[in-house]
Design a protein around this nucleic acid. Structure first.
Lengths: 338, 338
DNA sequence: TTGTACGCGTTATCAC
DNA sequence: GTGATAACGCGTACAA
């Protein structure tokens, strides 16, 4: 593996100055067609590619974006990250992707690494809004940030999902089917979607005139053995809810397993609405009514907002909200007996 | 946003030469404890982080790895990429992730971008082994490559999955249940897993003594509207297979939908084995018998092999094979009537 | 143990 | 339209 050809090698072969080669690469209009052709030929002959490190040193721009997600395997995160990557790549940016496994300490380490790497901006999907050390690290950051569906005390553009309207619609749907005892199972993460959904649920059950004492909010730690146990605890007993809203396909799996174990068939013995679980919604029997979002669009818009910010650093902060929607399928039915 | 502090700023504040700061960052043992403490204090005070571009320019090493996957949303790919990222991050490497949407032209563009960015190595999961332009681009690459389950004519370390034994076991399982007409639905991609699985299937049905003319191999283009149609075509008619092996959870979805439409219940009217579809295997009714792999391990081992290669550029090429296994669940049953 | 001097490959600036 | 020159921030050879 010999040394890569540099801009100087190209210049020598083409019989021009290095600056001319640079211009051919960056602003071809400034170079006459004939010399441009000569330079391009030399580039091809040598297999020249510019050295991004040197370029970045000169311009103080790396043309790369860092992205921090808690878990790439979760379908919504993967879809968002992939869409963002596509959009950024089309604009000439590379994506440095890190996944933290829901560990704020890992996120702090990742932020450090991304800072070292001089990323031009950050797509931030942090796993804990309340972690003090993480918040301190974020405050020190001093680069364009795009915050994804989180409530953070930083100056940044923010892309949110509107969780309340669709959740309210979902609760009304269940109330309309006669359900009087509802529950919502949320991840135990301290992040905006959980906060919003909890509040929306409580508001919606109140508006539907349901007895507040009969409604339950359960928060489940992300470890798998907690999931099943929490689902079993919730669904057992005479005062168990007749309908549940469940966040995330991992927890939905646990609820399906618990319902099977307790002989509560869906939808006759239990109505189920899945939040953000479209990866499995059409493959269960019955299929799952869900509250879902256009993840591909979220990724695209997030990347677009960040790119706009890079182009206009002084513009006022933006706060964009994208809708959620209810998709009716077969997992909800009228309440039985009681 | 003012200029980031440089090594010189730190040196000035600490009252030492820049080279001493550099040593504190890279080889602290070379510096006396007292000056080291002074330098570290100055680093903290200024919020100094090294500039990776400048470092990379000096050392010709970027401490970053490129990764090329066809589709991040597919569960196996996401799991592999995430595991690789974790492993690389622990070793101080960042991951530049690109997803190509199964488009070799996009992969060529991504390779160009990653070359410009001076990645130290590449995790290669290409979408078409036979594309001439892509093969030419790969041949020009001249950096450590780790090839994931592909047959490519490049000098590189290779991490493969053993597809044949588990597929053979799966076919024997079906034959043992009395099935005499089998089919395998594969993606239309020109990649090693498809080649291996096709061959393994044909060999296994021959060994099981099944009539070769009654066995079918179907290759489905990746577009969703083809998937359902292909499944319907396969499952309709009197000579339709009584058992199918189906690659990938997207195609499994299509087969489930087609089977429902044709009133072929699983497993009584159709036995089904899913290849690489563990994301939905335990959520269907009945649950799916699968041929699966340890994706997390694949990502970890791939990253490890690449790191070893970076540490020992002259070592002989390695070719590692990881097992697949059959997981028996409820989607296969004895053949009915006939 | 610490410091001086230089160059990595590129682009900005200014001159022609 | 083209070129000469300096500078970006860091690590390394060598010197003290």
């Amino acid at each position: 593996m010999s040394r890569r050809p540099t801009i100087r090698d190209v210049a020598r072969v083409a019989g021009v100055a290095t600056v001319t080669v640079s211009r051919v690469a960056n602003d071809p209009a400034l170079v006459s067609p004939t010399t441009r052709a000569r330079v391009e030929q030399a580039m091809r002959d040598l297999g020249y590619v510019a050295n991004a490190a040197a370029r970045s040193m000169r311009t103080r721009l790396s043309r790369s974006i860092g992205c921090l997600v808690p878990d790439l395997v979760a379908y919504p995160n993967a879809a968002i990250a992939q869409a963002a990557e596509r959009h950024l790549a089309a604009a000439g940016y590379s994506l440095l992707l890190t996944s933290s496994d829901y560990d704020p300490a890992a996120e702090i380490r990742a932020l450090e690494a991304l800072r070292t790497r001089q990323v031009d901006g950050l797509l931030l999907y942090v796993s804990d809004e309340t972690d003090p050390a993480l918040n301190r690290a974020l405050a020190r950051l001093d680069m364009p940030l795009l915050v994804l569906d989180r409530t953070l005390a930083v100056d940044a553009d923010v892309l949110l999902s509107a969780h309340e309207p669709a959740l309210q619609e979902a609760v009304r749907h269940l109330a309309g089917l006669g359900h009087r005892r509802l529950a919502i199972m949320l991840s135990g993460l301290r992040v905006r979607p959980v906060v919003e959904r909890r509040r929306a649920f409580l508001r919606a059950v109140a508006e539907a005139g349901l007895d507040a004492l009969a409604q339950r909010v359960v928060e489940v730690p992300p470890e798998d053995h907690h999931r099943l146990r929490a689902a079993q605890d919730l669904l057992a007993g005479p005062a168990a809810p007749t309908a549940v809203l469940v966040e995330g396909s991992r927890q939905v799996r646990a609820v399906l397993a618990a319902a099977r174990g307790l002989d509560r068939s869906i939808p006759h013995g239990l109505s189920l609405i899945a939040l953000d679980a479209s990866d499995i919604a059409t493959v269960t029997t019955p299929e799952l009514t869900t509250v879902t979002r256009d993840y591909e669009r979220i990724g695209r818009v997030a990347a677009g907002l960040l790119l706009e910010r890079l182009a206009a650093p002084g513009a006022p902060w933006r706060r964009v909200e994208l809708e959620s929607r209810v998709e009716l399928r077969g997992s909800c039915g009228p309440v039985w007996g009681d």
